[in-house]
Design a binder for these strands. Sequence first.
DNA 1: CCTATTAATTCTATTATATAGAATTTATAA
DNA 2: TTATAAATTCTATATAATAGAATTAATAGG
Lengths: 108, 108
Amino acid sequence: MKYLSRPEELVLLTIWKMKEEPYGINIRKYITKMTGKYWSIGSIYVPLDRLENKGYLTSSLVSPTSERGGKSKRFYQLTKEGLKQLQEIKKIYQAFWKDLPDLSVKKT
Amino acid sequence: MKYLSRPEELVLLTIWKMKEEPYGINIRKYITKMTGKYWSIGSIYVPLDRLENKGYLTSSLVSPTSERGGKSKRFYQLTKEGLKQLQEIKKIYQAFWKDLPDLSVKKT
DNA sequence: CCTATTAATTCTATTATATAGAATTTATAA
DNA sequence: TTATAAATTCTATATAATAGAATTAATAGG
């Protein structure tokens, strides 16, 4: 893709905004809440993976706290490059969406 | 995709904004200018096609004016459904991008 | 201590989309 | 009647979306 795809964009933005622990399950929860749509496990983890491979994210496993058991969480953080991508699509977005005829009215 | 993909978004927005003749070549020209990136022929026409199949666009061939020869242009127009999709991603976009920590500063 | 349960991630397959550019079509000019 | 130009259509390959099963690793309870 020339730019971040939509799922990549949402994942990155979520990590950037997130105050609570930025790991897969939480990210999925947030995106689900915000969009009101179902997001499969894969539809979160696959982009996470790709974004990390591209250098837009880094991650590290955190040692488990003493809640009920479970695998370690993997926390994500944006890299400088990831931020740059967000800036880029923000710029594109603004250029395309500004001066838009009102979307609530059908053009005739 | 749950939402319009990025190329679909740009194509639809371009058609919605365009004052001049909304046909493939012009759409490509506009998107190229706005993004400053190369867009192949296919990267415009393939989404156009798909958007029409999904019912977000309609099109019709226009009878050629007497310029230098060439195949007829196909003019595109947004449908109500296409507009609805734009409204939907606008809503998503706004929700995700508002209250964003400043993108120009690296979070520490 | 060993087993059930839970939380989370990793893996993998399938479908859909992105992207490039060659081929084709159709018109006019010479 | 052929060369040239403008535009679209077609098609192949690479990449991304999406779903969910499998796996891993931790703790609680007997």
